[in-house]
Design a protein around this nucleic acid. Sequence first.
DNA 1: CCAAAAGTGTTCATAGTACACCCATGT
DNA 2: ACATGGGTGTACTATGAACACTTTTGG
Lengths: 220, 220
Amino acid sequence: MHTHFTIDCVIYSFHEGQLKVLLTERNESPYSGWWALPGFFVNKYEEMEDAVARISYEMTGLKDIFMEQLAAFAGVKRHPEGRILTVAYTTLIRFDDVKNKVKPVTDYMRQANWFSVSELPELAFDHQEIINLSLDKLKRSISYSTAPFELLPDKFTLTQLQQVYEEILRKKLDKRNFRKKIMNLGYLKELNEVQQHVSYRAARLYKFDKRKFAKLFSQE
Amino acid sequence: MHTHFTIDCVIYSFHEGQLKVLLTERNESPYSGWWALPGFFVNKYEEMEDAVARISYEMTGLKDIFMEQLAAFAGVKRHPEGRILTVAYTTLIRFDDVKNKVKPVTDYMRQANWFSVSELPELAFDHQEIINLSLDKLKRSISYSTAPFELLPDKFTLTQLQQVYEEILRKKLDKRNFRKKIMNLGYLKELNEVQQHVSYRAARLYKFDKRKFAKLFSQE
DNA sequence: CCAAAAGTGTTCATAGTACACCCATGT
DNA sequence: ACATGGGTGTACTATGAACACTTTTGG
């Protein structure tokens, strides 16, 4: 009638054209020395939302990130000591905001690091399964969500945006059709600015207009 | 680091043109005498899937129903005794298959009964919230899922099918457009049979072709 | 013959797809 | 001048939405 209760965090980012996930190296048995999702036990009188914030901070050093629930995993055999129920949470963050800040503030993890989702090491527990489920969900929801913009800097080019879509959907898109579609959605703000420091024609920058995005859904 | 762990079941059915959910009347404190989702504690060494099967059976008398995970709810204040983490599961069943079979086989519940989702009594715990979330999910997934067919008998009329869509989406649909769309999907089998015992023109019956439905997704 | 629900098509607007070349810039 | 990615349009197809009348049947 009781179970151990943990939270695991699937934190995505986008860098160098690739979708990355943040992993931590465990410093505790079992799976000491293995890479795993940042995660830990929930305290007895702690709300789940508070636990998510605390644990994501302690394991990765990241503060003030809002995470969304993915699912519960509760296999009796997940852990040698018996059932540990884990509730997995996911979020998307901008790589530039955090690039030098990922560092565990607890001894339970030795280090934290970004891995391309297509080249993951072997993971502890059932963490690969958790990532697979979350990637599926991301793929399904991308068209109706702000997900691509949460992964990009405030100002971005259409090519960068297209790369995010391509990484998440795992397929190539046609440039002209992509631009037509994305501009028709009506929530991109065209800026009078272009990329700097590139050795080819500089691309125009765009911003995501949250207000217009929200309007599309509120009117129904 | 430990928590109580329960499963709650959201079981839908369709009857008399309405989407129904199966509730049980509690016989235990807290909320004794209140209507609640069928749910109970998971045993220590029990797999979550086994617990779902056992609990749905004990609370409602229904056997062999496959349930899908919805989400975890873990508010510290959900229960006077402290945190109880519940994982909610949902399923859809055919009313005709079960109409006289819903009866708890435990004393924890006094009775089980179907309620129209639009006329629910006040529910125990946060169960209304759980139902709301599951209705949202059902609405979002209806177009890509077998959900409507799981709620209908083996042979059904197009009007019945349309009613299921209308109930889940909570809006009226145009008959001609609905038929055009649903027939274009290509997984309805037209039978050489019609309704019996109706006092008006009998409608043609259709079957859902699982194989064709599955093909649509496997080819991608 | 009447009540009740079954069944049926066309038009219009919108969205998706396929496809290839010239342009601007930095080195 | 060249390499690199930026930027653009058209034709076709498919899908979604609006809209009203005739047909069949049992009682």
